[in-house]
């Protein structure tokens, strides 16, 4: 187990290196620099600014400087917000994005598993079709459509929930979490239904049924652990999707998370901020994928065998 984990972590390092390198040279290819402004700056001023941020050095020099600073844990200063370091900006945005992702994941798991359970216990009845139809709708509705629709219904028509914000007013975290989580709930519903149906058709379940165990007991004690395998395998990609996909929700609900910082940074050519965000999110995704893999292996003895042989 530890060997697998170490192995995976070692694999992650070249990934991050590729991310850093590609991003670094890609953004410097972009037309327009961080100091282009509507009111043109005198050339002397631009020269001063570029010297301040060491943008006057050759690009490869900047690249090695950046790598060097990175090893020291320094993401550099933000170009957009004078006096703010990228670390400071990330430190304000990341906890919010993580919180949003956790709530959305909770929504996805609770609603998704519930729908999957309902559907799998009575396949090919209304109790199956209805949740699955809803799940399909969830998959087919873009987030940027679902969000404003939820706001319109719950925020404006019923006036139950605030229309935006994150911690401004009680209850304002509900709609963003729902908006982000529902698409994933839909996928989890379909996966858990499939997984459960497969397990329920196995011999040991039939044996349990024959022994006269009650349906809930069979379902929760025997079927669920096995039936969850596909859902658990999906968690890694799901969390990655939640983290990188959060900025649509952050834009619609004006949440001060990392996603909004990232998109603003891309538009503002805030080089260091783009780099910092990309590196951080990549690292998170790499780590989460490793964790998801390890959990899958731990829960599934067959996979463990396979890895031992590899």
């Amino acid at each position: 187990m530890i060997r697998i984990a170490l192995n995976r972590i070692l694999q992650g390092i070249p990934v991050l290196f590729v991310v850093i390198t590609v991003t670094f040279f890609l953004i410097r290819q972009a037309p327009g620099g961080p100091f282009d402004a509507e009111r043109a700056l005198p050339p002397e001023v631009i020269k001063n600014l570029e010297a301040t941020y060491r943008l006057d050095a050759p690009v490869y020099q900047q690249y090695f400087d950046y790598l060097g600073n990175l090893l020291k844990g320094d993401f550099g200063p933000s170009f957009r917000y004078p006096g703010r370091s990228v670390t400071e900006l990330i430190a304000t945005g990341l906890p919010i994005t993580l919180e949003l992702a956790v709530y959305a994941l909770a929504v996805a798991l609770v609603l998704g598993l519930l729908a999957g359970l309902l559907a799998a216990t009575r396949p090919r009845t209304l109790q199956d079709y209805l949740p699955m139809a809803l799940a399909m709708t969830g998959i087919c509705l873009p987030t940027f459509l679902l969000g404003p629709l939820l706001v319109l219904v719950f925020g404006i028509w019923f006036e139950w929930l605030p229309v935006s914000g994150w911690g401004y007013a009680p209850g304002d975290k509900i709609l963003p979490s729902l908006t982000l989580g529902l698409a994933y709930a839909a996928v989890i519903a379909r996966l858990s239904r499939g997984g459960l149906l497969e397990v329920l058709s196995q011999n040991y379940i039939r044996t349990a049924r024959a022994k006269g165990l009650s349906t809930p007991t069979i379902l929760f004690r025997h079927a669920l652990p096995g039936g969850m395998a596909p859902v658990i395998a999906y968690l890694g990609p799901a969390i990655a999707g939640l983290l990188t996909g959060s900025f649509v929700v952050e834009t619609i609900f004006q949440i001060p998370g990392l996603g909004r910082f990232y998109v603003q940074a891309a538009f503002n050519r805030d080089y260091t901020m783009i780099m910092g965000t990309t590196i951080l999110l990549s690292a998170l995704i790499v780590v989460l994928n490793i964790v998801a893999d390890l959990v899958s292996i731990k829960l599934n003895p067959q996979l463990r065998q396979k890895h031992r042989h590899e």
């Binding site: 590729v18 996909g245 965000t277």
Partner: peptide, 19 residues
């Protein structure tokens, strides 16, 4: 496997902004 771990959404956004 390596490419799988890249945050592609972020790259696509960057690509579309940049070019």
């Amino acid at each position: 496997d390596i490419l799988y771990a890249l945050p592609f959404m972020i790259f696509v956004i960057l690509l579309m902004v940049v070019f």
